[in-house]
Amino acid sequence: MITVKNLIKTYPGDVPTYALKGVSLEIAKGEFVALMGRSGSGKSTLLHQLGLLDIPTSGSVTVNGTDVLALSDTERTKFRLQHLGYVFQEYALIAEFTALENVYFPAMAFGDTSAKERATELLRIVGLQERLDHYPSEMSGGEQQRVAIARSLINNPKVLYADEPTANLDTVSSEVVFKLFQKLNKELGQTILVVTHEPEDKKYVDRVVWLKDGLIDTNYQ
């Protein structure tokens, strides 16, 4: 599903930061993978590149057979909308939209007319059927994060990326989120790559990929 070859990301500056120094990685369809590593090891950077939110310095990324780095700006935006789900550490909901609107909006932008029903269904799956018309400011962090997860799934993404989705949540809410990922993975065969720093979370995933100083740390595998 995802093939990463020799991915390099250097943040230019007075002192350039070599955040990714040549990462190669393969994630199969239907796999649930955790990305772990010390703070500053490059996890978020890697996820940003894979989620097409940023452009790497060099290397190649193939998602579902598409060389995504070869896409134009507009194509990349469309690819993101159509094939990728992304959950940020901060809930990144649109404050002016209700839970339901936040979830169906990406589908609406795609011209999907049945978006509302699907969004309602997704919110039911994440356990928020009672919160459809609530605005983000009226929901707890865990609830907002579950709305964000529901949103990331609305367009049936090929891959779901999540960058420390539970970092701001308490243990109980974190468990809910990871159990949800597990369920999506097992029942729908959703490919998931999740960044986490909780060793606890290893139990939910198929495989852990370790990053150290911008490189895959094979010692752990």
Binding site: L53, T74, T77, I94, F105, A109
Partner: peptide
């Protein structure tokens, strides 16, 4: 922030 989120979701700049 709202504009950034819209873009992250995959909403075209022109929209």
């Amino acid at each position: 922030r709202q504009i950034g989120i819209l873009k992250a979701i995959g909403i075209k700049e022109s929209i």
